[in-house]
Amino acid sequence: MADIALEDRNPAARQDNQDPAIFGQTPSQTVGPFFHYGLPWKGGADLIGKSDMGARPELFGEDHYVLNLSAPTGTPTGEAIELAGIVCDHDGEPVVDAMVEIWQANAAGRYRSADDPRDDIAIDPHFVGFGRSSTSEAGEFRFRTVMPGRVPGPGGSLQAPHIAVSLFARGVLRRLATRIYFAGSDGLADDPVLALVPAERRDTLIARRDGEGVWRLDLRLGGEGETVFFDL
């Protein structure tokens, strides 16, 4: 220490984030119950309009709203749909402090991502495809979006229209990943990912029509009809 200037002395290193000996993936931790002022912004669950869907601004004071405000954009191309469901625990009780995220292709089947190399399919300037919804006091998530187009699967196959879903909540130590498919859509019977799911559990991934343009699928963390989650 003696040859290091006082102002440059650091405490002796202990095993911590900066230690090369334990370098590797940062472990996941729960989102906890108090994320509402930090993550789900107004309009985060409305991928096609300008509503405030997705946020729970009643859970904190207006002067503490530092999240995004939904900005006006044009209307994306495609079939507008509403996608809703209840998140429930092993006892069937609604999970009122969950956050559901979606990621999907546009109506033509193109992801808005530099990692989707298919330049022959156009990006929709009015559609990103990422959304975030807090669950309500009834445990319900709700999105407005467009029906995604089909995207390629392994080995030149074609996947049925689907939306990738991440689920976060108090008591959930790492992101739960699943998918939502749509009953009756093209390619459902030979979707290469759905085919990896035991036949008797596939229904937990398939939303049902519940009125014009409205689709429903509950996400069950346990009990009867536990949702299939994926290991990515």
Binding site: H90, G153, G171, V193, G222, F229
Partner: peptide
């Protein structure tokens, strides 16, 4: 009450 019982399914 919130951890799924079934193991997650690996997908490509």
């Amino acid at each position: 009450l919130r951890a799924p019982h079934q193991p997650p399914i690996a997908i490509p």
